[in-house]
Design a protein around this nucleic acid. Structure first.
Length: 600
RNA sequence: GCGGGUGUAGCUCAGUUGGUUAGAGCGCUGGCCUGUCACGCCAGAGGCCGCGGGUUCGAGUCCCGUCACUCGCGCCA
């Protein structure tokens, strides 16, 4: 007989009755009747009830053993009496009568209960992650993650993509997020950077002629965490393909995304490929951001012109529009029966959560002579203006409009957040639907208000729509790029682009953003040099694996789908990272600390 | 760096207008219990009310500061 087990804890059925078997696992739960002791034995596969009688020499040991101890039990499989069967367990028709017992590992009193999975503070869960991972929900999430990654791999390989590993210790790049740095012992004063993404490497693989590349790639960015953004590190399905147009990339990746979601949707509805395409500017106008949650059936609009019409007395917003600002309308459909407090709470939400001046509103009702507006600011508008504004914003009897006003960027931000908040408040979000879309036609450049200059709005290696010519002829802020995102349920799932493989166009593109040729040559030398020796047109995309799993798992938080995540402060509470290191280690790396004061 | 929320037993939470000795459930410890599967019953231990200051005759409760966790903003080519 095997030293540890003849079966796993989800294997035994009525067929096994009378067999002598051996099981190993964790003591999930004990039910001690004094004269009879039940043990639910758990492993990765399931639960089996074991029973031990007081005559057995091991009874006292087992009775005193704490839950989550690891044991090996040997005994006979017996049928349960009809009224003692447990229909909730696959193994519920039988039980194991314990004869031999071996205690493999005793458990102390637990800092975190495994059984029952009560809510527990996250810092304790993170510190004792291996206990948390024993819990069914988290255990399943991690298995789901494994299966999703396997499915992604298979789907990519089936399409002729090859997986390659790219370096983890690489060079810092001036663009993008903050880098994690690694000091070089052999090269004093110099540093490696962990890759924010294998961006340049995958392009170099195209130059190297590999045609179709993918990788489940670790990416490192030293940026602050969010609910859907793990601090420090995350994984992308990194993809690049040669001689590919934007349509080719879409055609390659859409079936992968739709396919993997359908595979694991478990009955939930998935947008079939091809996904709807929404131009960036349209998304900003209608949804207030570039990652719309299309489950919320609300489309916003620009109503600025109505606030400067003659006869409109609402001076606050009129002044904003006349000063170059904008007013966006966010419909709140079917809110006729909502109390005044609903509208007041939205206003309070905007002030509190968004630090906005407020959120005005007008409620619309069918009056005797047509649609009329109600609410605190309705009286400042002529009846006729209200009717036309309602028509423009697409609202009618029983609907309301909220207004976000201010500088365009602020108004848009508030619009997007308010749309999501209204969707949540009005219970418009269906948890059983995955709504996909592409956001396309991102602008190549944007105005950097902080540094008063034109900067790349996304990837500097993207190809402008119209090629090199438009860089000379168009206003840079009007130039669009072959740059695209996949969005699902308001979460940005991937970002990609057709790359700029022509050096002269690249130098010109960088010049517009204020980087001279010499800077580009030195900062991106690896890629620039490679492009001098024959670079194929190429493009790609990089879906975020953690976010895909998060959506499929129905998790609110990305830490629920990461085996060993860090907390919001980018600390690993289990491993105690980051930690101080020995002075000797620092000396080898030629590093001397210059710590901030006041740190006690 | 900034804003919101939370912080009372190991955990989840209650705690009236500021008023006697801060409670419950789960867990833990001990005892009883031969058919449970959220086993049941009895008893017990366990509290710097996050921390510091203030107001007050009196603070878990009010005020200020601070820390921790979390959500968001900034940031995230």
């Amino acid at each position: 007989m095997h030293a540890y087990r003849t079966h796993n804890c989800n294997a035994l059925r009525e067929d096994h009755i009378d067999q002598s078997v051996r099981l190993s696992g964790w003591v999930h739960r004990k039910r001690d009747h004094g004269g009879l002791l039940f043990i639910d034995l758990r492993d990765h596969y399931g639960l089996t009830q074991c029973v031990i009688e007081p005559e057995n020499k091991n009874f006292a040991t087992l009775e005193r053993l704490r839950v989550e101890s690891v044991i090996t039990v040997t005994g006979k499989v017996v049928a349960r009496l009809a009224d003692a069967k447990n229909a909730n367990l696959p193994t519920g028709d039988i039980e194991l009568v314990v004869e031999e017992l071996e205690v493999q590992s005793r458990a102390q009193e637990l800092p975190l209960p495994v059984f029952g999975e009560p809510d527990y503070p996250e810092d304790i869960r993170l510190k004792y992650r291996y206990l948390d991972l024993r819990r069914q929900k988290l255990h399943q999430n991690i298995i789901l993650r494994s299966q999703v990654i396997n499915s992604l791999r298979n789907r990519m390989i089936a399409q002729g993509f090859n997986e390659f590993q790219t370096p983890i210790l690489t060079a810092s790049s001036p663009e993008g997020a903050r880098d994690f740095l690694v000091a070089s012992r052999l090269n004093p004063g110099k540093f490696y950077a962990l890759p924010q993404a294998p961006q340049q490497f995958k392009q170099l693989l195209m130059v190297a002629g590999f045609d179709r590349y993918f990788q489940i790639a670790p990416c490192f960015r030293d940026e602050d965490a969010r609910a859907d953004r793990s601090p420090g590190e995350f994984y992308q399905l990194d993809v690049e393909m040669s001689f590919a147009t934007q349509e080719d990339v879409f055609a390659a990746i859409e079936p992968v995304m739709a396919g993997v979601f359908e595979e694991f949707a478990n009955g939930r509805e998935v947008t079939p490929a091809p996904f709807p395409r929404i131009p960036y500017r349209e998304s900003m106008l209608k949804y207030g951001n570039d990652k719309p949650d299309l489950r919320i059936d609300i489309e916003c609009s620009d109503v600025s012109p109505f606030f400067v019409e003659d006869g409109v007395e609402f001076k606050a917003f009129k002044g904003i529009v006349e000063g170059g600002g904008t007013v966006r309308a966010i419909p709140a459909p079917k809110t006729k029966d909502k109390p005044r407090s609903f509208f007041d709470k939205m206003n309070g939400w905007a002030q509190r959560e968004m630090q906005a001046p407020g959120l005005g509103y007008i409620r619309f009702e069918q009056g005797e002579d047509g649609l009329i507006g109600k609410g605190p600011i309705a009286k400042f508008f002529p009846a006729d203006t209200l009717v036309r504004m309602a028509a423009h914003a697409g609202v009618g009897d029983g609907d309301a409009l909220f207004f976000a006003a201010g500088k365009e960027t602020d108004a848009v931000k508030l619009t997007g957040a308010a749309r999501a908040e209204i969707g949540a408040q009005l219970d418009m979000i269906d948890d059983n639907v995955f709504k996909f879309c592409w956001i396309v036609d991102f602008p190549m450049y944007e105005w950097d208000e902080e540094n008063k200059k034109i900067d790349f709005s996304h990837n500097p290696f993207s190809m402008p729509q119209g090629g090199g010519e438009v860089l000379n002829t168009m206003d840079p802020l009007d130039i669009l790029a072959y740059q695209y995102d996949i969005v699902c349920n308001g979460i940005e799932l991937s970002s990609g682009a057709i790359r700029n493989h022509q050096l002269d166009v690249m130098f010109k593109a960088f010049e517009i953003a204020g980087y001279d040729k010499e800077t580009v040559e030195s900062e991106f030398s690896g890629m620039i040099n490679a492009f001098k020796f024959g670079a194929p047109p190429h493009g790609g995309i990089a879906p975020g694996v953690d976010r895909i799993v998060m959506l499929l798992a129905g998790a609110e938080n990305i830490r629920e789908v990461i085996v060993f995540p860090m907390n919001q402060q980018a600390q690993d509470l289990m491993m105690n990272a980051p930690s101080e290191v020995d002075v000797k280690q620092l000396r080898e790396l030629h590093i001397r600390l210059d710590l901030p004061k006041e740190k006690k």
